[in-house]
């Protein structure tokens, strides 16, 4: 589904990703962990198409299509979804208008009929129940005045609405209390299907108690330096990142 080969990316001449290789197959859950500044969020941004970063080398195939030259909106239409670490507040744009525009853009791309207002509202109700989002939130402007937890839940709600093939969740667990974390994790688990995949980007192992990954990768200095099963996350939780750093420097 996703194949990343030797991906290099920089911002203002500062290289942040220095050769990432990663393969994600349908039905899989991958966790990308790593210390602060290792390039985790940059990887998420680059995959979603943030123009602040310049890709200097490498290849990213998503469902066999090269997405690096695609605009962010086209990547989304192809089925890529990024849950933001810091979802943006957009006062004046209503959640309903935003989501309906978004969903219908995706449908248009797939040559499907746009949803009517009533069809849309029905789907919205179903998905709201699925991810346990407070129904008042959808009456407001996008993320405006939402608490940290509400913003993260709203990301998962959008994911439920858009039904992406690949979801990249960037630090979705950060700043969440245990209840919000449970709601977010349940949402992700309920949305899991044999034909979609999830990449979790996280600093802590906490989220992985709720969403069990098939693979855990450690990102350090812009490269994946270690890959293992879910037990690797426990090891990191117990021992921190220092041993990884040391291993890396010894090489």
């Amino acid at each position: 589904m996703l194949s990343i080969k030797n991906l290099h990316a920089k911002i203002e001449d500062k290289e942040i990703l220095r050769g990432i290789d990663l393969n994600v197959k349908p039905g899989e859950v991958h966790a990308i962990m790593g210390p602060n500044g290792s390039g985790k969020s940059t990887l998420a941004s680059v995959l979603a198409g943030n123009e602040m970063f310049e890709v200097s080398e490498g290849e990213v195939l998503f469902n066999d299509k090269d997405i690096l030259d695609m605009a962010p909106e086209d990547r989304a239409r192809e089925g890529l979804f990024l849950s933001f670490q810091y979802p943006v507040e957009i006062p004046g744009v209503s959640m309903v208008n935003f989501l309906r525009t978004s969903l219908n853009e995706l449908r248009k791309y797939r040559r499907e009929k746009p949803f009517s207002a009533s069809e849309f509202l029905k789907i919205m109700r179903e998905k709201k129940n699925l991810v346990e989002i407070d129904s008042n939130l959808t009456n407001r402007s996008v993320n405006e005045g939402f608490s940290g937890g509400e913003k993260k839940k709203n990301e998962i709600f959008q994911m439920a609405m858009l039904e992406p093939k690949l979801s990249i969740l960037d630090e979705t667990d950060s700043g969440l209390d245990i209840d919000a974390l449970r709601v977010v994790a349940n949402g992700v688990n309920k949305l899991k299907r044999p034909d979609n995949a999830t990449v979790l980007i996280t600093h802590y192992q906490r989220l992985l108690e709720y969403i069990v990954p098939d693979y855990v990768h450690v990102l350090y200095h812009g490269r994946i330096v270690k890959t293992g099963g879910k037990e690797l996350a426990h090891e990191l939780e117990a021992n921190g990142y220092d041993w990884i750093k040391k291993e890396f420097e010894d090489q």
């Binding site: 198409g49 605009a71 909106e73 239409r77 943006v88 957009i90 004046g92 935003f98 853009e105 858009l162």
Partner: peptide, 20 residues
Amino acid sequence: FYLRTRGINKEEATILLMYA
């Protein structure tokens, strides 16, 4: 960028933001 990652193209996103 946020709007575009949700499949909304640049022109449409510009209109949404101007309206906002």
